[in-house]
Amino acid sequence: MAELTYREAVRSAMREEMRSDPRVILMGESITGYGGSYAVTKGLVEEFGPKRVMETPIAEAGIVGFAVGAAMGGLRPVAELMTVNFALLALDQIVNSAAKFHYMFGGQWSVPLVVRTVSGFGQLGPTHSQTFEGWFASVPGLKVVMPATPADAKGLLLAAIRDPDPVIFIEHSLLYSTKGEVPEQEGLEVPIGRAAVVREGTDVTLVGYSRMLLQALHAAEVLEREDGVSCEVIDLRTLRPLDYPTVVGSVARTHRLVLCGEDWRTGGFGGSLLSEIQDRSFDDLDAPIARVAMRDIPLPYSRKLEQQLIPASQQIVEAVRRMS
């Protein structure tokens, strides 16, 4: 095992796959000389050259459309969209092109494309602080991945690049500098579509992904220490296709469930997840499913205001306490 940051783990997945597969290319805004706005692609153009690490115009729809075409032409493009907020400009290409071609053209070809993008906060104001994983996860034909740890970031990105279908790979800006153990074996995948039980417990299940997984783990420690409550914590890792059996199996043991997300309460990803789990686990539940989510308010710039809104471990602790 080697200790890597989340940022280094993402970079090493791209580097390893580019070394072993000449079809893999990267493209995005300011990803060469600048190194990417979150410095994820730093050093890659020096190793692989501008033909494989392409500096693009600021044109998100064009970038994804171009990457779809390159994928159809036999390449394995990894397109970086600077943040998920800018991905809105590329929604048509993601939804109407990448996600549709395999189905719509009767299986004649697929679109092996990875769109890497970033959610996150940090006094960036209303247009730069949003979460849209629920939108992507609502589209048949897409696979949606949101890793929480460096090991998963690397293993899932390797799996995403090798996958024949379009994968939306959402990183988190507040996780880039977190560190974790990553297997040293090159090319080791983490399979798409599998959740992980990262902490075993008996009293309540906490389900999270990306940054909220870390908040759930912290909440579990607090609840054990202060309340003697044993929490099982699940990292979804993939939002579509979603690993329901792992969640349902856990609820059958704990009989209580808290869904932890950063998405807006109305129409967010947690809403459809809640509905699906209720359908499958109603008889096992001893309390209504609780949900930690963003209040339906745009994220303001001011630190004092922003802190009020960003979901954190304290809300998870409170949600569990309200159940008992």
Binding site: F66, G69, A70, G73, S97
Partner: peptide
């Protein structure tokens, strides 16, 4: 742009 991407390949 899809045509342009194919041309790039």
């Amino acid at each position: 742009p899809i045509g342009a991407g194919m041309a790039y390949a």
